[in-house]
Amino acid sequence: MPKFALITGASSGIGLALAEALARRGRNLLLVARQRPALESIAHELSQRFAVQTLFRVCDLSQPLQLTGLLHELEQGRLHIDLLINNAAFASFGPYLEQDWRQEQALIEVGVLASARLCHSLGQHMQQRGGGQILNVSSLAAFQPGPWMSNYFASKAYLLHFSEALREELAPHGVRVSVLCPGPTNTGFFRKAGMDVRQMADSKFMLSAEAVAQYTLKALDKNRAIIIPGWRNRLVSRLPGFAPRWLTRKVAARVNRMMAGN
């Protein structure tokens, strides 16, 4: 039975970069996202360029019934998923109480519940087989609260703590769990969230999605628990541990409001 890497949010950004980097290594792929045209194009291109089997499934992870259908298909099918990458996520930006609740709920459904459910379902199969690997994509935002992006920062903190705990639980069964916490990455993420990061465009903190993907795969080869691309980002991740919580909140609030132009 051929082995596949399942990647959510695979139609753009870090998810797409990881898909290409894995295909370059000869890995078969199962790509999951909402946009059928993009998935079809990407699957065809990767199959042609790297001679790997590239499948795709259209699924809106904010819709629990669609996720249930995907999991049912995986359970009934013959695909051996030995690498799960939970990458799908999006952010909202601005005062929490001014956000549309439906969007805030969707953020939690995609960034928290779908990731946890995929880990639960596919993790069980990996445990039964005695091997496999899970990568949850969190963020540098996970290390502190984030006023004006409160729900997003909290969702990434969940993934960080959840992944570390799951790593300890599954290690005796041969299943490796890691969490990726990238800093600012040059993708469409900020634009979709309505954030102005033009002042960061040439910053040394801003990495390309391709650089993040390459660093991540090397770290997965070494079974790193927490993966933070870029030495500057690794330094930033440690700073909240040396500052009082009130100061961490204030600094994060100021940075996020600057991105709003306020």
Rank of each mutant, 00 (worst) to 15 (best):
T185Y: 08
T185K: 09
T187Q: 03
G188E: 12
G188Y: 01
G188Q: 13
F189N: 01
F189Y: 04
R191T: 09
R191I: 02
K192H: 04
K192C: 01
K192A: 13
K192F: 00
K192Y: 00
K192I: 01
K192T: 08
A193K: 04
A193G: 05
G194P: 05
M195F: 00
M195H: 01
M195E: 04
M195C: 01
V197E: 02
Q199V: 07
M200A: 12
M200L: 15
A201H: 10
K204D: 11
K204N: 05
K204T: 11
F205Y: 09
F205W: 06
F205R: 08
F205G: 00
L207H: 05
L207C: 00
L207S: 06
L207Y: 03
L207D: 03
S208N: 03
S208H: 03
S208D: 07
A209Q: 04
A209I: 01
V212F: 08
A213H: 05
A213V: 10
A213R: 06
A213C: 07
A213Y: 06
Q214T: 12
Q214F: 02
Q214V: 11
Q214S: 10
Y215F: 13
Y215H: 14
Y215E: 10
Y215K: 05
T216M: 10
T216I: 09
L217N: 09
L217V: 10
L217A: 07
K218N: 07
K218G: 13
L220T: 06
L220W: 03
D221Q: 15
D221N: 14
D221Y: 03
K222V: 02
K222T: 06
K222D: 12
K222M: 11
N223S: 15
N223I: 06
R224D: 13
R224K: 15
R224Q: 15
A225V: 12
A225Q: 12
I226H: 09
I226A: 06
I227N: 12
I228G: 11
I228F: 11
I228N: 10
P229L: 11
P229A: 11
G230M: 10
G230L: 10
